[in-house]
Every structure is written in C-alpha cells, then in structure tokens.
C-alpha cells in the first residue's frame, strides 16, 4: 500500500511537469498540441542515444534537450502554427486546424525517431535501490521527481512573480484584453508554446532513466497529459498537480493490484468520470 503511494507520487511528479507544459501551450497559445508526447519521447531518445553512444550523463541531456526543444517549438509555433492562428475565423476552426497540424507533426517526429532507433530505448542509469519512508524505490526515480518539482516550482514562481510571467497569465485569461494593454500576444504565445515543449522534452529525458520507451509510445503520454489538464482544469496549475497525483497513484495501484495492461483503461475511467461529472475540472467553476 505504501509502495503504491510512494511510487505513484514519484511518477506523478513528471506527469505534473509535462501537464504543466501542455497547459501553457493550450491555455496561453490556444494550441491543443497533440505532438506533446512525441516531444517527450524525443527527449527520452536523446538521453538514451547520447548515453549509449557518448556515455553522456542523462541529466546533462535533460538541460540540453530542454534548450533544443525550446528552440524547436519556438520555430514550430512561429512558422507553422502562426499562419493557422491568423487564418482562423473562430476558436473552433483554430482548434480543428491545430489538432490536424500537430497530429501531422507527431507522426513526422515519430517517423524520424523510428529511423534513428526502431527498438526500445533501454539503458540503466542510477537504478540502485533506495529506501524512502520504509518503501524501496530507485535513485533515478527520486532524482526525476525532485527535478520535476524543481522545474515545475521554478516555472510556477516565474509565472507569478515576474513581469513576463504575469503577462503570460494575462494572455491566458484574454488574448484581446492583453493585446489592448500592450502585451505582445504573439510573442507570449510563442514563448508559452516553446516553454511547453522544453518542459516536455526535459520530462522525457528524466523519465527515460527508469521507464523504457520506444518511438511509438508518445501518444500515451499525450493522452495522460491531456487527461491531467482536463481533470485539473485548463490553466489551473494547482488542479494539474492534484490531477497528476491522482493519475499517478491510480495507475500504480491498478498496475500492481490488478494488471499492468490496464493502466490506460484506468486513466480512461477517470477521464470519463471527469467528463460526466466535472467537465470544468476538479476545482473549476462551471462557466457558460
């Protein structure tokens, strides 16, 4: 029981981080990025590849992957998504376009990853056991959790206590009003999108030390991140953290108590319950 709680909590750290990134992309840039999971897997692939071929410490890759993903996502937003934002007549039209476009990107990234590594990204790094409040887990899981908390916490502080961060939150509330008070909305959107990508890639590199991924697994992470965002409420960071913990613990519980093959089904069940009973998110108010 305690084991489930501890490993569930540790897993949820990374989930929360990735969901936070997706939240920025959807909440601020208004793009539902379905390639988010592939960016995560790309981070994992980088860590795996650099470790096995260059023996590079995966935690260095975390930083490098975040920077590279930031630049890459900035470019994607600037050159591929901005034209869609411009041509969209309604929010609904943008939604459909961005869903299809990011699907396309997810398949392209997936295809590229297949040609780099067709098999599993399996390697061992800091997998020594460690005991935490009476439950045994591995060092890499703990480090990933701490790093996720660090990055997420930093992002939270940045969003709440810096000029740019507050401007970004303003855009998430209303693009029009933010534009009127002199906030550069396109720039903020691009920044949010790039940050979201950076966070996903960092999360992927962290996860790769203890979960074996492959090129096609991205969609599962996209789904989980989306479920967390919706459960927590769009734009609600506190909600996303609680949702991530719930998902992490429930998944671990189902995997250990029933069957590891049913984790997705469990995540789905949560999703359906949320859709039916609290579509506005755990803490959200019902708006019309």
């Amino acid at each position: 029981m305690l084991d489930i709680l501890v490993s569930g909590l540790l897993l949820s750290g990374t989930y929360a981080l990735v969901a936070m990134g997706l939240n920025l992309q959807y909440g601020v840039a208004r793009i539902m990025n379905l390639a988010n999971g592939e960016v995560l897997v790309l981070g994992a692939l980088a860590a795996f590849w650099l470790y096995t071929t260059r023996e590079l410490n995966p935690y260095i890759t975390v930083i490098a992957a975040a920077l590279a993903a930031f630049a890459g996502n900035w470019l994607i937003y600037r050159f591929l998504l901005t034209p869609l934002v411009r041509r969209a007549k309604t929010q609904g039209a943008l939604e459909v376009d961005s869903i299809l476009a990011t699907f396309g990107m997810s398949f392209i990234i997936m295809g590229v990853m297949f040609s780099i590594e067709g098999g599993y990204f399996a390697y061992k790094y800091l997998s020594e056991p460690i005991s935490i409040i009476g439950s045994t887990t591995s060092v890499n899981r703990v480090i990933a959790f701490l790093a996720a908390v660090g990055i997420g916490g930093g992002l939270y502080l940045w969003l709440n206590h810096t000029r740019t961060g507050v401007a970004m939150r303003a855009v998430s509330v209303s693009t029009e009003a933010s534009g009127l008070v002199g906030i550069n909305v396109p720039r903020m959107s691009a920044l949010a999108f790039a940050l979201g990508g950076a966070v996903a890639a960092a999360g992927g590199a962290l996860i790769s030390t203890f979960i074996t991924l492959d090129a096609s697994i991205g969609v599962v992470f996209t789904l989980k991140a989306l479920i967390i965002v919706i459960m927590g409420g769009v734009g609600d960071i506190r909600g996303a953290i609680v949702a991530a913990v719930i998902l992490g613990v429930v998944e671990t519980a189902v995997a250990t108590l029933i069957d590891p093959g049913l984790t997705l089904a469990a995540a789905y069940l949560i999703f359906v319950l949320i859709l039916l009973f609290r579509p506005q998110g755990l803490f959200g108010r019902r708006t019309t």
């Binding site: 299809l100 476009a101 699907f103 396309g104 990107m105 997810s106 398949f107 392209i108 990234i109 997936m110 295809g111 590229v112 297949f114």
Partner: peptide
C-alpha cells in the same frame, strides 16, 4: 509513419 504525418 512519416508519410501519414506529411499527409496531415
């Protein structure tokens, strides 16, 4: 896979 992406 790449082709599906390009088609989208």
């Amino acid at each position: 896979t790449l082709f599906i992406g390009v088609a989208f």
